[in-house]
């Protein structure tokens, strides 16, 4: 479920930024109840951002009926300059279905929050790894190259930072081994006990 781990991480990062920046409230309210679907060329699945009164919901499907963007990560940053939009569409870097204003309002909020994605994602998924989850074989743009490596390493590590209760697959693996070992030891102990009891029986006879 690497996609779901990614959307969970995005949601956590965005909502933390929203709560830390009270000035973002006005921009968020402007899009309350609206949604934006983004098809990034680098991803093989769509992301939808749904604005609520105080927070943002992120899901991995194309549910928005307000606005759908198809573009690349590098173009995303240029969106807030409305003067560029027409030329981006003409050059094929950007495709918009629905209301472009909505996309700009989301972009404005994004700009205001000025989340350091590189640092945030690295913080959440970085310096762990050890496991490969290959499902998310994406080629993310150069700028986020590091994220690609980290995401395709066990994406569930994301949640480890947020949810210390989540168990990593190596822990699960260790646990499985420990159970098997314990079972063997119990069987051995059981055999020895049986033996001892038999011996004791013979002696007492």
């Amino acid at each position: 479920m690497p996609k779901q781990a990614l959307t969970a991480a995005l949601e956590i990062i965005i909502n933390k930024a929203l709560s830390l920046d009270p000035d973002s409230q006005a921009n968020l309210e402007a899009i309350n109840g609206r949604s934006l679907t983004v098809n990034l060329r680098e991803f093989d699945f769509p992301l939808t951002f749904i604005a609520e009164q105080k927070s943002m919901l992120v899901v991995a499907n194309n549910t928005s009926e307000d606005c759908v963007l198809t573009t690349s990560l590098s173009t995303l940053g240029k969106l807030r300059q409305s003067s560029l939009i027409t030329s981006l569409i003409k050059s094929g870097e950007l495709d918009i279905e629905g209301d472009p204003k909505i996309a700009q309002q989301f972009a404005r909020l994004g700009e205001q929050l000025s989340i350091d994605w590189e640092q945030q994602l690295a913080h959440r998924i970085g310096d762990v790894g050890a496991y490969k989850v290959h499902q998310l074989a994406l080629s993310i743009g150069k700028k986020l190259q590091f994220a690609k490596q980290q995401i395709s390493q066990d994406a569930s590590e994301f949640l480890l930072h947020e949810q210390p209760m989540l168990v990593a697959s190596h822990q699960q693996h260790d646990f499985t081994l420990a159970v098997t070992l314990l079972e063997q030891q119990t069987q051995e102990l059981d055999a020895r006990l049986t033996n001892l009891i038999e011996q004791a029986d013979q002696i007492s006879r």
């Binding site: 479920m1 779901q4 781990a5 959307t7 969970a8 899901v59 991995a60 569930s156 949640l159 949810q163 209760m165 989540l166 168990v167």
Partner: peptide, 10 residues
Amino acid sequence: FGVHRLWKRF
């Protein structure tokens, strides 16, 4: 271990 949240997201 919190994974039910991911199952539900899925």
